[in-house]
Amino acid sequence: MTAGRSLMPLAKRIIPCLDVDRGRVVKGVNFVGIRDAGDPVEIARRYNEEGADELTFLDITASHEDRDTTAHTVEKIAREVFIPLTVGGGVREVSDIRTLLNAGADKVSINTTAIHNPDLVRQAAERFGSQCIVVAMDVKRVESAETMPRYELFTHGGRKPTGIEAVAWAQKMAALGAGEILLTSMDRDGTRDGFELVVTRAIADAVDIPLIASGGVGSLAHLAAGILEGGADAVLAASIFHFGEFTIPEAKSYLADQGIEVRI
């Protein structure tokens, strides 16, 4: 190793997240210079130009019929955006994953279905390779009289408890072949209070696969904390980028100043 060279050349990733309903971005995007803030293609193109390391596209469309729109949107994005694209939301079967990969997704994220049918993760990893299978986990801190406080998986946007303990679940998913964990703290999501670092660290240490931290980012310091204290390999955020508070280059230069390896 030559002096001054990082020992860990792999860059930490910054991932903007788009919530998309029937082909339109919701939870508003408020970029200067964007003509149509609801157009996922235009927003994706903008993040691609700014130097985002990856994009996550979360389909929150309620009805199954409208999901064709998703594949179509993914196709349009993939034609113009030359960074990795993760697509999640409503993935139920191996054929859903195939459709999204064929449309141009690089990774597909499985959330609720992994809870009802963990074998889907194994089948998908065997069929398409672990590298494109992301397991998304929505967790909340649970206090009870009988046990120590712990983190459990929730479904339905954090409303429905499952009783499943988060760290053991992440390990199980990794063992089944997941290639990455997308961890969202439902306690922090939308609060701008920063990542839930305790559970982030616990899972990052417990699994050998990369971890994306999500939920609660309100400042650039939160991004750095997710990596340095939470041990995350990538950090995901929506509003701080969508509303033009910070650009991707600003976030990267901040992280670089904290000694974090980033792709400039």
């Binding site: 190793m1 020992l7 860990m8 050349p9 792999l10 860059a11 930490k12 990733r13 390391d53 672990s130 590298q131 290639g179 990455e180 050998d208 696969i209 990369p210 971890l211 390999d233 990538a234 792709r263």
Partner: peptide
């Protein structure tokens, strides 16, 4: 391998996923 480490002995995640030189 499951026990991949950098030269300082820090554990490296597998898959090798992300932007490398």
């Amino acid at each position: 391998g499951q026990d991949l480490k950098d030269p300082e002995g820090n554990r490296l995640k597998v898959p090798h996923m992300g932007w490398n030189e």
